[in-house]
Simulated assay, not measured.
Amino acid sequence: MSDRFFVVTGGPGAGKTSLITELARRGFHTIPESGRAIIREETASGGDALPWADRMAFAERMLEWDLRAYSAAQALSGPVIFDRGIPDIMGYLTLCGLPVPPHVAAAARANRYNARAFLAPYWNEIFTQDTERKQTRSEAEATYAVMRETYIALGCEIKELPRADIATRSEFVCVQLGI
Rank of each mutant, 00 (worst) to 15 (best):
V104N: 03
V104P: 07
V104G: 05
A105M: 10
A105K: 13
A105H: 11
A105V: 08
A106G: 03
A106M: 01
A107V: 06
A107K: 00
A108S: 04
A108K: 01
A108V: 06
A108T: 02
R109N: 13
A110W: 02
N111C: 10
N111F: 07
N111T: 04
N111A: 08
R112N: 03
R112V: 02
Y113H: 00
Y113G: 00
Y113D: 00
Y113E: 00
Y113A: 02
A115G: 09
A115Y: 03
A115V: 14
R116F: 10
R116W: 08
A117I: 12
A117P: 02
F118Y: 06
L119N: 08
L119V: 07
L119S: 06
L119I: 06
L119T: 05
A120Y: 02
P121T: 08
P121D: 06
Y122T: 04
Y122C: 03
W123N: 01
W123D: 05
W123V: 03
N124C: 05
N124A: 15
E125Q: 13
E125G: 10
E125R: 11
E125T: 13
E125K: 09
I126K: 00
I126N: 03
I126G: 04
F127I: 09
T128R: 15
T128P: 07
D130N: 14
D130E: 08
E132A: 14
E132H: 15
E132M: 12
R133V: 05
K134M: 10
Q135T: 15
Q135H: 13
Q135I: 14
Q135P: 11
T136F: 03
R137G: 05
R137A: 15
E139A: 14
A140Q: 10
A140T: 12
A140N: 10
E141N: 02
E141D: 09
E141F: 01
A142V: 01
T143L: 09
Y144D: 14
Y144L: 01
Y144C: 10
Y144R: 13
Y144N: 13
A145V: 12
A145N: 11
A145K: 13
A145R: 14
V146D: 01
V146P: 05
M147K: 11
R148H: 12
R148S: 07
R148E: 12
E149G: 10
Y151W: 09
I152M: 07
I152N: 00
I152D: 03
A153D: 04
A153M: 03
L154I: 04
L154Q: 05
G155S: 02
C156R: 06
C156K: 06
E157C: 06
E157V: 12
I158M: 06
I158Q: 06
I158A: 04
K159D: 11
K159S: 12
L161G: 03
L161Y: 05
L161H: 04
L161K: 08
P162Y: 10
P162M: 08
R163A: 05
R163D: 04
A164L: 02
A164G: 03
A164P: 02
I166V: 15
I166M: 04
I166D: 00
I166T: 14
I166L: 06
